[in-house]
């Protein structure tokens, strides 16, 4: 197995773990954690392809990963702000109990 395939498999497994977390957990914060794990798995793929790709000097994959880290930070801040706001409104962060669209 080549090193690149190893990294890709790890990233795929991490992505699947994150997806499973996002789909199966009840708490909204853990769903966000799952999404962060998925984003990180994608970053690992980007960096691995940059490292073993034909043109590492072009920095494309690395830049993509750096920008995605910055965007993920913004996403986490807004997402957690929304969770806190919903918790204040509904007194719960449990997604199964948030079954009404009326406030």
């Amino acid at each position: 197995m080549t090193p690149l395939a190893g990294y890709l498999l790890v990233a795929a497994l991490l992505f699947a773990i994150g997806l499973a977390g996002a789909l199966t957990r009840r708490n909204a914060i853990l769903v966000l954690i799952g999404i962060e794990l998925m984003l990180n798995a994608a970053n690992l793929n980007l960096i691995a392809f940059w490292r073993y790709g034909p043109h590492p000097e072009a920095l494309t994959g690395m830049m993509f990963a750096i920008f995605s880290i910055a965007v993920a930070a913004a996403e986490a801040a807004v997402g957690l702000g929304l969770v806190i706001s919903i918790h204040r409104h509904a007194q719960t962060a449990d997604l199964d109990e948030m079954n009404r669209m009326k406030g």
Binding site: A22, R26, L30, D96
Partner: peptide, 19 residues
């Protein structure tokens, strides 16, 4: 009711399929 959602089996199947 535990920490997992009621539809946890479907989520697990989807994640496994993606992997």
């Amino acid at each position: 009711g535990g920490v997992f959602s009621r539809t946890w089996l479907a989520g697990l199947v989807v994640a496994a399929a993606v992997f």
